[in-house]
Simulated scan of single mutants.
Amino acid sequence: MPRYQPEPRPYELMVLFRPDLAEDGLDAAIERVSSLIQEAGGTVTNIKRDTPWGRRRLAYPIQRFQDAIYVLYHFTCPPAGTRDIERELRLNEQVIRHLMVRLDE
């Protein structure tokens, strides 16, 4: 009997990267998160890393950092794939915080 596979849903993911990443290291970290999404069966539709995002002051220190580099991802993914993405983000040492929300249709 075939299992029910839910349709991919739209998500928004905000990732705060360490501020001490060099420009090429930041590009690699952004690409790494994009590949995580694709490995989970998702499709990245937009990556926003410039105005109004980018390097910003934090409201309170996280670990020992006062600043962070904000990157916003929009993507579609099957619901089961989001667990894998969040697990990998928690293990990634370049990510100091992340938040994934499902967008309303």
Rank of each mutant, 00 (worst) to 15 (best):
F65G: 03
M100H: 04
R18A: 13
Y11C: 01
R57S: 13
G81E: 00
R57E: 13
E31Y: 01
P10N: 13
I85M: 03
W53D: 00
R87E: 10
T51P: 00
F75G: 07
P61G: 09
D50R: 09
I85E: 05
P78R: 15
L103G: 11
K48C: 02
R83E: 06
A22P: 00
I69T: 01
M14S: 03
V44I: 09
I37Y: 10
A28V: 05
T43N: 11
E31R: 08
E86W: 10
L72E: 04
G25R: 06
R49H: 15
V101E: 03
H98F: 15
T82Q: 06
L21F: 05
D20V: 02
P19E: 03
P52Q: 10
V44G: 08
L91R: 12
L26P: 07
D50M: 02
G41Y: 13
A59D: 14
L16N: 08
E88Q: 15
P79G: 15
D84M: 06
M14K: 00
E93A: 11
D24N: 13
A22V: 03
V15Q: 01
P2R: 13
E86N: 14
R32A: 14
V101T: 13
P61D: 14
C77L: 14
T82I: 12
L91H: 07
E7C: 09
Y70L: 04
F17D: 12
Y4G: 07
D50T: 01
L99E: 01
A29G: 03
V71P: 05
Q5I: 08
I62C: 06
G81N: 00
P61H: 11
Q63V: 10
N46Y: 02
P61Q: 13
P2W: 10
I37W: 11
A80Y: 05
S34V: 00
E86A: 14
G25A: 11
R90S: 05
D20H: 06
Q63G: 04
A29R: 02
A80C: 05
E31Q: 07
Y70H: 07
P52I: 05
R18D: 11
P52M: 08
E39W: 04
A40G: 08
P79Y: 15
V33E: 12
D84Y: 04
Q5E: 12
R102G: 10
E7V: 12
T45I: 02
M1E: 15
N46F: 03
A22I: 01
T45L: 09
V95D: 14
P6C: 06
Y70F: 14
P78A: 15
F75S: 05
V44P: 10
R49P: 07
N92A: 14
